[in-house]
């Protein structure tokens, strides 16, 4: 279970999150919707441990463990996974090498033994096949020269390999055509389990047709201002965010 209590965070002295409260139960898919600049990416970064943010108040707990005292790799070992809105290119490091380093480090952090190379290859191949990632992409430098859709698929592939306790998807739909959106969503849906929670961040309702959320939260000016079921997303699609942009403090 992810619990965020009264979270206040700022960057370069600018307050972005202003007393945010949110609980995501195991097995639950929570969508976060909100206008541009409302703090959605910031929330994902503060949960996953990006440096540069100052948390001035509040707590973030995953299964009771305070994440805020851990660095990003330690949080990954605790089971946090962030699929980036803009995945980074890593020149000179092949995708395969990166995946192996990542999986072994994560397993080590969780007190699990390293995988043998054949076992590792087997898992990567299986995940790649499910997501329609061609094998030759795995031999290329990570994300270098990948299309937007390929990058997003690679994010989901990594999530599948690392088997996180809690997955955060930051605008995974942006830049995807409808076919890619379907493949990526199927990849995410395959990972849904009673033991795993998700935070699906999106600006548009479209993604939620494919990854159907249990709850929808509206983020505005660094706070959750409204919570509802999946129908809230449809409502927002019609009315827009105007109501929230105006009223929050």
């Amino acid at each position: 279970m992810l619990e965020i209590k009264n979270l206040h965070a700022e960057i370069d002295g600018k307050k972005i999150l202003n007393g945010l409260n949110l609980t995501v139960a195991d097995g639950e898919v929570a969508a976060i919707m909100g206008p541009n600049g409302s703090g959605k990416s910031t929330l994902s970064y503060v949960i996953s441990g990006r440096e540069g943010y100052e948390v001035t108040d509040g707590e973030v707990l995953l299964d009771g463990v305070n994440l805020l005292n851990l660095d990003a790799s330690e949080r990954a070992a605790q089971g946090v996974f962030l699929a980036f809105q803009y995945p980074l290119e890593i020149p000179g490091v092949t995708t395969m090498t990166f995946l192996k380093a990542s999986l072994n480090a994560t397993r080590k952090g969780r007190g699990e033994p390293e995988l043998s190379t054949p076992e590792f290859m087997k898992r990567v191949r299986a995940a790649a096949d499910r997501l329609g990632v061609p094998q030759d992409m795995l031999r290329r430098a990570l994300n270098v020269g990948f299309s937007g859709g390929e990058k997003k698929r690679m994010e989901i592939l990594q999530m599948a390999l690392l088997e996180p306790k809690f997955g955060i998807l930051d605008e995974t739909d942006s830049g995807l055509d409808i076919d890619a959106l379907r493949i990526v969503s199927e990849g995410v849906n395959a990972l849904r389990s009673p033991h795993r929670g998700f935070l699906v961040i999106t600006h548009y309702q479209r993604l939620l047709d494919y990854i159907v959320p249990d709850k929808v939260h509206v983020l505005s000016k660094g706070q959750i201002v409204k919570t509802g079921g999946k129908e809230l997303a449809l409502e927002l699609e019609k009315t827009g965010y105007g109501e929230f942009v105006g009223e929050a403090a």
Binding site: G52, D71, R75, A76, L88, S102
Partner: peptide
């Protein structure tokens, strides 16, 4: 630093 955070978020400790 963005690349570092990205790789760290995939479980790889900073020195590595």
């Amino acid at each position: 630093e963005n690349q570092i955070f990205y790789a760290q978020s995939r479980g790889i400790p900073r020195p590595q």
